[in-house]
Design a protein around this nucleic acid. Structure first.
Length: 307
DNA sequence: CCTAAGACCTGGCTGC
DNA sequence: TGCAGCCAGGTCTTAG
């Protein structure tokens, strides 16, 4: 399940293989994977053909390829959704079972000549998006210098690892909301790149309950949460991203292995490792939340009082 | 304006 | 063994 670290692994992984290369042909094998391209499959294929890839940018979980050769400033957006992969492969490699889009690239010595988008659950997709100025005049995301952001990602906040974001930004965004803490950090307009897994990990690490109301959050708590978010994401990135089912595979085809160092997510019924260290035998619990699961320690992440 | 719930998807798993 | 139904989850859309 790609969250920010996995998407950044992909961004770094494909950058050197695709930058400066020209898209010679485009093949959409499943129109559902380009459904966000409002002008249709044919327009997607025709517009992209002949473009040269100039950069690979990212904000949160949105990835984009900068394009030269189009009249207006437009980028190729890619979102991996739940199960998406971007692979750089030779044309001779057999089509993957869930291959959705194939970009054939100009020949380059010792470089594979296809960029493939593979997606089983089709929550992800590709589409073209025009660039708009950033609201703060600062670079649009990781991998880009210009103060431009794809229109389709302009509404989301800077992500956890964005150097132009601060703990105070997070505090301000949280205090503007009137909802629960976990719901808020999963809202990409508050802070981007956080999904269900790393939300639980960062809340556990900062000893905060996701049920806390954002209106009651104090600066020191946000400071702790912010540090935890950065720490969790940084460690996951160093490990090459997390993988649970075999759906997520990084650009080299190898699964990430951060999953084995998770402290909360997926650990229902197991001891809270921090409490055990303190001589307390508390057990991680799972609760339904927004149609998914939340994993928490009932002892070190005290729930707010209900009135 | 805000927040919350529903829809989109497939395939692995569970239970009858 | 077969099959219906549940579950996973990010983001957009719709409802309140």
């Amino acid at each position: 399940m790609p969250e920010l670290p996995e998407v950044e692994v992909v961004r770094r992984g494909i950058e050197k293989w695709v930058r400066t290369r020209t898209v010679e042909s485009v093949q959409v094998l499943d129109p559902r994977s380009v459904r966000r391209h409002v002008d249709g499959v044919l327009d997607f294929e025709e517009s992209l053909t002949g473009c040269t890839i100039s950069s690979v940018g990212r904000r949160g979980k949105f990835l984009w390829l900068g394009l030269a050769g189009l009249e207006s400033e437009t980028v190729l957006m890619a979102h991996l959704g739940m199960s998406g992969q971007l692979l750089v492969e030779g044309a001779e490699a057999p089509d993957e079972k869930h291959l959705k889009v194939r970009l054939s690239l100009s020949q380059a010595k010792d470089y594979p000549d296809e960029l493939r988008f593979i997606d089983q659950r089709i929550f992800g997709g590709m589409f073209l998006s025009s660039l708009v100025p950033t609201k703060d005049g600062l670079p649009g995301g990781v991998g880009v210098q210009e103060p431009l952001i794809p229109q389709a990602a302009a509404h989301i906040a800077r992500d956890v690892l964005d150097p132009y974001r601060s703990a105070e930004d997070l505090y301000v965004a949280l205090r503007k909301r009137s909802t629960e803490l976990k719901r808020a950090i999963l809202d990409q307009a508050v802070i981007s790149g956080v999904g269900n897994i790393y939300a639980d990990e960062a809340l556990w690490q900062s000893k905060l309950s996701g049920l806390r109301k954002t209106a009651t959050i104090r600066r020191p708590e946000v400071q702790r949460l912010n540090e935890a978010l950065i720490d969790v994401m940084t460690r996951a990135l160093a490990a090459g991203g997390t993988s649970f089912d075999s759906l997520y595979v990084n650009v080299n085809g190898a699964s990430g292995y951060f999953a084995r160092s998770l402290n909360a997510y997926g650990r229902e019924g197991k001891f809270c490792l921090r409490c055990v260290e303190n001589g307390v035998a508390s057990v991680i619990r799972r609760d339904a939340f927004m149609g998914r699961s939340s994993y928490t320690c009932p002892v070190c992440q005290p729930r707010p009082r209900v009135r």
